[in-house]
Design a protein around this nucleic acid. Structure first.
Lengths: 150, 150
DNA sequence: ACAAAGTCCATCGGATCGATAGGTTTTCAA
DNA sequence: TTGAAAACCTATCGATCCGATGGACTTTGT
């Protein structure tokens, strides 16, 4: 199960991608997406630090995407918010950690099985982008973000 | 990330499958697998309640598999110990729950992407069994639990 | 100057995780 | 028949995480 926070982050990015307007305030975004405002602010700040989102302070300030929606992968957001995608620490590429009590990594049957899970999960999550998740299909076609939905 | 408890459960089952002897005490199993004994007892009790493992009480008591190792899937153990495999509650087959704040399930872009993750994760986990994870390959061949390792 | 908005940091209640502890019941063997 | 070994049951614990809230501060446009 992914965290609520990661869901919020993804939905916020999708909403930002759908907005034509230059920027949206956290308050507006919170209301339209039904996300607790202060919590959303934290999330957006993280996304900003990652360089995914841009902010402008002061009155008329707000947030906007800093990169094209079809270059922001689910995998990147998930790793940022929830940590490694791999189901075992010893299978993470981005945050490898040896399993404390494991005798031999190469002989570990549990690891062998979960390696397959990790591979396929990564394939999906590093392949899917915010653009793939936009709610209005006509938007996708109009903007040529995806060729067509398979 | 799967829980430590699920890892213990899988390792315990693998160890039980590898044992030729009729039954093993929790204490022995705990020592050989380096799992906290009392914690392991809880796990084995759960596995027993599920009908995966058998127990005999009293002196000379212990645990043994109640079904062939190649019929015990990773998916089953994971669901028992860690809960649903699906990354979103609204994608779980075994424990479906609507996402509280979701407007429309069918229009949810996040859901669409994670549906693919769920499908592939299930394919792997419901396909892999304890027999697939046994450490000693010769055991597998000898007992014809798998034809050969791909 | 003031209001609106982002930023920073602390805290909080509740849940979960990993484990430990102690007592009870069953069983076997001496 | 009694004592040890083992499963079984329930409670509790400390640490961490999760989801969220609050307040103080800074920046910015009008």
């Amino acid at each position: 199960m992914i965290s609520q926070k990661a869901k919020y982050a993804l939905r916020a990015l999708i909403a930002l991608a759908e907005m034509k307007t230059a920027s949206v305030s956290a308050a507006e975004l919170a209301q339209s997406e039904r996300i607790p405002r202060k919590f959303l602010e934290q999330i957006l700040t993280e996304l900003k630090r990652e360089g995914i989102v841009q902010s402008r302070r002061g009155a008329t300030g707000g947030y906007s995407l800093l990169m094209p929606a079809d270059t922001i992968t689910f995998g990147r957001i998930l790793r940022l918010i929830d940590g490694p995608i791999a189901p075992l620490p010893c299978l993470s590429r981005t945050a490898y950690r040896r399993c404390e009590d494991c005798r031999s990594e190469s002989a570990c049957g549990v690891r062998r099985v979960f390696a397959d899970v990790a591979i396929s999960a990564r394939a999906v999550l590093d392949g899917a982008t915010i653009a793939d998740a936009l709610t209005d299909p006509s938007f996708l076609v109009q903007n040529r973000l995806i060729p067509e939905r398979a």
